[in-house]
Amino acid sequence: MSTLKDEVEVLRKIPLFAAMDPSKLKLLAYASDKVEYEDGQLLFRQGDQGDAAFIVLSGVADIVSETGGTEVVVAQLRDHALVGEMSVFCDIPRSATVRANGRLVALKIGKGYLLDLIKEFPELATRIIRELAFRLAKTTADLAASERAARH
């Protein structure tokens, strides 16, 4: 049985929360649920309403895009990755399905609480923005690469 202290240690290792005050991390650990998934279990499904964001603590999560009945694994997330934050911020349905690939332990942070947290810690907001910007850059690069590949 891990205590809050252990969980805080885990959270501290996540770059997103590295700068946060330990007592606030403790609250975050307390407020979020540690959830365990078996292989193949869904964290959420594409099109669902988003009520929580997840941080992968251990294991691998597949990001699956479902279009016209076919499933394509578009990305894989590993340790300390933030996932599911988009529909929490923007109130849009889940843009993809996230599925556990093997045993997965994640931290589930409720929507209301995540927004509260960001309001209280601008530092966290900056980090999330940076993370999102990195992702956008990567997506842009990937898109350019695939366009190039298609042209050839």
């Binding site: 609250l27 307390y30 407020a31 409720g110 209301g112 609480y113 509260d116």
Partner: peptide, 9 residues
Amino acid sequence: DSKIFETVA
């Protein structure tokens, strides 16, 4: 009025 009291605490 923190949300924490309503949801998790």
